[in-house]
Amino acid sequence: MTAPKEPKVDSTLAKGLSILEKLAGSNSSMGVTELAKSLDLTKSNTFRLLQSLTALGYVKHNPDKTYAATLKTWQVGRALLDNLNLRELAAPEMKHLSQETGEAIYLAVPENLQVVYIDKLDSPKPIRSWNPIGGSAPLHCVGTGKAILAQNYAALRPQVSGQLTRHTDLSLTNLADLDADVEETLRRGFAYDRGEFRERILSFGAAITLPTGEAIAALGVSLPDVNMPQKGADWLGSLVAHAAQSISAKVGRT
Rank of each mutant, 00 (worst) to 15 (best):
P4C: 13
E6G: 11
P7F: 15
V9R: 00
S11D: 01
K15D: 08
L20D: 04
L23F: 05
A24T: 09
G25F: 05
S28G: 05
S29H: 01
A36N: 04
S38M: 07
L39V: 00
D40T: 06
L53C: 12
T54P: 13
G57T: 12
V59R: 01
P63E: 15
Y67H: 04
A68N: 05
T73E: 13
Q75W: 08
G77M: 06
A90S: 00
A91F: 10
A91Y: 09
T101C: 10
Y106L: 10
L107A: 00
A108T: 00
E111W: 00
Q114Y: 04
P126F: 07
G134H: 00
L139H: 00
L139V: 02
G143H: 02
A150F: 13
A150W: 12
Q151K: 07
Q151R: 04
A154C: 11
L156P: 03
P158G: 01
L164T: 12
R166D: 15
T173D: 02
L175I: 04
D181R: 02
R187G: 13
R188P: 07
R194D: 15
R194E: 10
I201L: 07
M228S: 11
M228R: 08
L236A: 13
H242W: 05
A244F: 09
I247R: 03
K250N: 11
